[in-house]
């Protein structure tokens, strides 16, 4: 597209990068930034009603949850979980997906039939979050199983992309030249084909971060991901539901954190894609 949209797209990309940088710093420096220990239960005066105890105060700017824990600190620590899960899921699924996609595209033949003709379709025939829910439901809820499940649904995107790139680049003269010079398969894939596929893979990784953060929060919200008392954003949202009527801010702030992060990663992905397309 570009053209008249170019400037707007740049703004979008800068906004996305800024938000993600802030969230990364917050996640890394959580113990320094957070005003309180996220697990510490602050007792409120006995004269206060439960509703009053949840409200923001000068000491707890976003209020406290039903157990008296500081919401701001919990959201800050929640950024750690989101980023950690997101990065691991993207790394694992990109690694597996790229490898399988490269094999499928490079060797073709029955390997390609089996992988892209069958395996990709099987994984695509589950709505992705459903497969993750199924895996976590049977493996049991934990961060490790969550990462495993999200990687299991994430790799197909990278695999299809890599396969398409390999098919495109495989026939180029420089690949033939490299082969004529005696380069082996793995060298051709790693040194000649992969660099050409890196741009779309990065776009996919950015969108993959958005998807992983969103899925982590979804599963944790359903009680199938990160388990309380660990402060994942999804856990915070679920904890807040009973108090929707009297303390909607308990839901609003973690919700905004999820939205902003997902939005920023989507922005970055879109921006990179438009840049690559020009």
């Amino acid at each position: 597209m570009g053209g008249s949209n170019g400037k707007a797209m740049n703004r979008v990309g800068i906004f996305g990068l800024t938000v993600i940088t802030i969230f990364f710093v917050v996640a890394l420096l959580a113990p320094v930034i957070a005003p309180w220990d996220p697990a510490e239960q602050h007792q409120a005066g006995p004269e206060l009603t439960i509703t009053e105890r949840l409200q923001p105060t000068s000491e707890h700017p976003l209020g406290r949850d039903d157990l008296g824990r500081d919401l701001l600190s919990r959201i800050i620590y929640g950024a750690r979980i989101s980023m950690e899960v997101g990065i691991l899921v993207v790394l694992i699924s990109a690694l597996i997906g790229t490898l399988i996609g490269a094999i499928s595209g490079y060797y073709g033949g029955w390997a390609d039939q089996l992988l892209s003709g069958f395996l990709f379709n099987v994984f695509l025939s589950f709505p992705s979050i459903l497969l993750a829910i199924a895996m976590v439901a049977f493996l049991g809820p934990s961060i490790r199983n969550l990462i495993l499940a999200l990687s299991a649904i994430g790799w197909v995107g990278y695999a299809r992309l890599m396969r398409a790139q390999v098919l495109k680049v495989r026939e180029y003269d420089f690949v033939t030249a490299a082969r004529a010079l005696g380069a082996g398969d793995s060298r051709i894939i790693l040194r000649h084909i992969l660099p050409n596929a890196i741009q779309p893979l990065i776009v996919q990784a950015s969108l993959g971060m958005a998807g992983a953060v969103l899925s982590e929060a979804s599963l944790s919200f359903l009680g199938l991901g990160v388990q309380p008392p660990t402060p994942s954003w999804g856990v915070l949202l679920n904890d807040a539901r009973p108090y929707l009527r009297t303390a909607p801010h308990l839901l609003l702030f973690p919700g905004l954190a999820v939205m902003l992060t997902v939005l920023a990663f989507n922005f970055i992905g879109d921006w990179l894609r438009e840049r690559g397309g020009d």
Binding site: L214, F221, L251, G255, D270
Partner: peptide, 14 residues
């Protein structure tokens, strides 16, 4: 883009 980034479990309760 805002709509794509707003999960149901935020939009619904709001």
């Amino acid at each position: 883009l805002l709509g794509i980034s707003t999960p149901g479990f935020v939009l619904g309760p709001l």
